[in-house]
Design a protein around this nucleic acid. Structure first.
Lengths: 314, 314
DNA sequence: GGCTCGAGTGCTCAGATGAGCAGAGTGGTG
DNA sequence: CACCACTCTGCTCATCTGAGCACTCGAGCC
């Protein structure tokens, strides 16, 4: 296509998309046949001169979702649009909403749903509607009795999801990470705790997020890890955590000793799951998201457009 | 429209615009009739959920142009798109290109074209193609022998436009602003200068830009005004200058004494012109652009999208 | 010069789409 | 409870649009 045709295709596009003229009218205006106009418009589209965006908090990017399924081997992918997003909070809200929508539309409805906890999960629980399901029992899959701030959000998350879904919640009464291996083993051999973990293993579906390996981590906020602890993990290659377990960019456990002191389902147990839904969004989580998808920790990913494009770039 | 329809219209839009499905196919996917799908899409458009942008340096915004003509009484308006603009230079280049295009397409071709000078005009002269017209004579409409830096750009602008248009240039051999009123009157009574100004008065069309009233002004750069001079003008309400004459937001001369020492066409002479093309763009020039359009200094405006929207807001 | 080849053009035709209309459903009102 | 006004739905029909095809034209080649 030469320059004159390129310019004509832009003029035609202006008249077609902005002025709502028919191709025939455009043909008269530009002294072209309507077929030529049609071809110019097709070329303008094909060369990427025409950008069509759907501006809505609930808008998704279906072509990116398809690429994630096909190129990264996911069973399903939900990608929310970032068009018109003004704050990190809004991005988080859009993703949580999309996750809630996905859960609500999920068929068959899971009988038992294993969940982790954290900011993302809590927000999903808030976006779920009353009656999103009838009779979904929720079980926590990793420990999480908060040590200091925000007591009970972990419990509130699970209970909220369960109540709105017409079922009940089973909490895992244990800290996320214990200081001594012996204590962790003792706790896990406790009859109640062992029962909860068994129940978690039998869940039909899992819903979890991932944390970035930095100082803003919930583990630091909750007091399970100190800032130097996190720095050390990062030094060893950690990109983030899933259900409290820190992984490197290949999805491998970074610190086996720390991992042994962490209560809950193991990553391999998650990997074996039929349906594992990861909800990961935000610019800070590109690296973890990549590790999670690469190492097949999830079969379904709910994320934002920028993160999705990052996954497809690599 | 309730929320459920809003969501459906977004889903429909995703399938229609991103997946290129037909309305019929979408109907099957969403369990709707194809007419319902058509209505949902129409509503999505009407409610502004669908944004279509033309990404191209030469793209224009026809609806905004129409509003400028209708609401601001311009004979014509050219608005370049800012979509995809990354630098102020690119915006300037796009506007200059549009002005060059407008001149090239102008019918009837002007016999004599009066031009001002400055960064914008120089760039327009560079964007014009050889042979953009056959036999257009160019005449400078305001004084502008540079005092210090960049000698000759004023002359190069006029000569460049004339040469590429197959005509010759008539320069106004005078400074823009003189220090004493007497000198100005003496210069204007010089036979050559008076002849040039007479020729300028008889031009079929005028092409000029406007400067913002700040320290980056060409008048400061050229040494005609000092920084304190400009500050004083701003204090008196100046928003910018047109052909070297500083105006307030109503288009009135801010400093009559200064104006009397300025060589070239007066603003009222410009206002009486049949065809006066102003080329004004950039965030710093919103106020001058507004004053120029308000006070009918131009009949045709070439500008950028952001400036145009500013004009329509007020 | 005559030839082929390929790009580009104008057309036919079928499929996709929007305008307009009649009927069904809904909610308010006497 | 009947009636009316209003909205929404599914339809017909005319128009718009894209796919495919035959044709032209010019470039390159023998």
């Amino acid at each position: 296509m030469d320059e004159i045709d390129e310019l004509l295709s832009i003029r035609a596009a202006e008249l077609y998309y902005e002025e709502n003229k028919t191709q025939d009218e455009i043909g008269q205006a530009l002294r072209l046949t309507r077929w030529k106009v049609g071809r110019l418009l097709a070329q303008a589209k094909q060369r990427g001169f025409i950008r069509i965006e759907i501006l809505h908090p609930r808008a998704r990017r279906l072509p990116i979702e398809r690429r994630l399924r096909e190129e990264r081997g996911l069973a399903d992918a939900i990608v929310v649009s970032t068009a018109g997003v003004t704050s990190p909070e809004e991005l988080q809200a859009r993703t949580a909403q999309a996750a809630a929508d996905y859960l609500t539309a999920l068929r068959p409805v899971p009988h038992t749903l294993g969940v982790s906890w954290g900011r993302t999960l809590f927000e999903i629980s808030q976006h779920l509607r009353n009656g999103w399901a009838t009779g979904v029992n929720v079980v926590q899959i990793n420990g999480g009795v908060s040590l200091n701030r925000r007591p009970g959000t972990a419990a509130a998350t699970a209970v909220g999801i369960a109540q709105k879904g017409g079922g009940s919640a089973t909490l895992l009464p244990s800290p996320a990470i214990l200081e001594r291996l012996e204590t962790k083993e003792a706790i896990e051999s406790d009859r109640v705790v062992a029962g909860v973990i068994d129940l978690a293993r039998s869940a039909d579906a899992y819903l979890f997020s991932a944390g970035a390996a930095d100082h803003s981590s919930v583990h630091v906020e909750s007091g399970y890890l100190s800032v130097p602890d996190v720095d050390l993990l990062v030094q060893k290659g950690a990109v983030g955590d899933v259900v409290g377990r820190y992984i490197d960019s290949d999805g491998n456990i970074v610190d086996p000793a720390l991992d042994a002191r962490t209560v809950g389902l193991t990553l391999d147990e998650l990997r074996r799951a039929e349906l594992a839904i990861a909800v990961i969004s935000g610019p800070g989580k590109h690296a973890v998201a990549d590790a999670v998808v690469r190492s097949r920790l999830c079969s379904v990913l709910v994320t934002d457009e920028a993160t999705a494009l990052h996954l497809l770039d690599g």
